[in-house]
């Protein structure tokens, strides 16, 4: 982490939950799946059709691969959420930090989604919708059981504290 936490001073810290490690594995797998073929293809094609020297251009996707690996780790560590008595807190981002607070009473809809790849890794993503479309409260990777628990709890709390527009 960089000087990151300097901006946000300590306060009564809620119980933060991180995201499961499977989430990081999935993202790294996707990174490798995308960039390794790109690197290989660039190197081979440029080697064959241009001069071998041109194949050095393959270093660019290669660099992104090497750089992206730890970056994904940093980003994964930065994601966390906390259920508090009356609202849900989501924090994310290393360079561009973002912290969202959604009062339970404002939730209109809680969505749990799980794609084929996500299911393979035992993950599900959870998205909260309020009446404001700009509210971007998403937790991209959760343990499916946890996602469902959270969904049920949020819906329940939302009903108890319901407030419209």
């Amino acid at each position: 982490m960089t000087s990151g936490a300097a901006g946000v001073p300590a306060r009564t810290d809620p119980e933060w939950q991180g995201l499961p490690a499977a989430m990081l594995r999935l993202r790294r797998l996707l990174l490798v799946l995308w960039l390794v073929p790109v690197t290989a293809a660039t190197a081979v094609l440029l080697w064959l059709f241009a001069a071998p020297g041109w194949a050095l251009f393959a270093l660019i996707p290669g660099f992104f691969l090497v750089w992206g690996w730890p970056m994904l780790g940093r980003n994964w560590r930065s994601w966390r959420y906390a259920e508090r008595a009356d609202d849900l807190l989501i924090q994310r981002g290393v360079m561009w930090r973002e912290e969202t607070v959604v009062p339970y009473g404002r939730m209109q809809l809680v969505e749990v989604e799980s794609g084929p790849l996500q299911r393979k890794f035992g993950l599900a993503s959870l998205q909260l919708h309020t009446a404001a479309a700009a509210t971007d409260a998403t937790i991209p990777g959760l343990d499916p059981a946890e996602a469902e628990r959270l969904r049920d709890r949020l819906t329940e709390l939302g009903e108890a504290r319901s407030a419209g527009l």
Binding site: E98, T100, V101, V102
Partner: peptide, 21 residues
């Protein structure tokens, strides 16, 4: 206040350097 749906804090690296958000 009653109309607020959610609150968000955003801070980019440049803003963090100047301690604003």
């Amino acid at each position: 206040h009653a109309k607020v749906q959610s609150v968000r804090l955003v801070q980019g690296p440049w803003m963090r350097r100047h301690k604003v958000a």
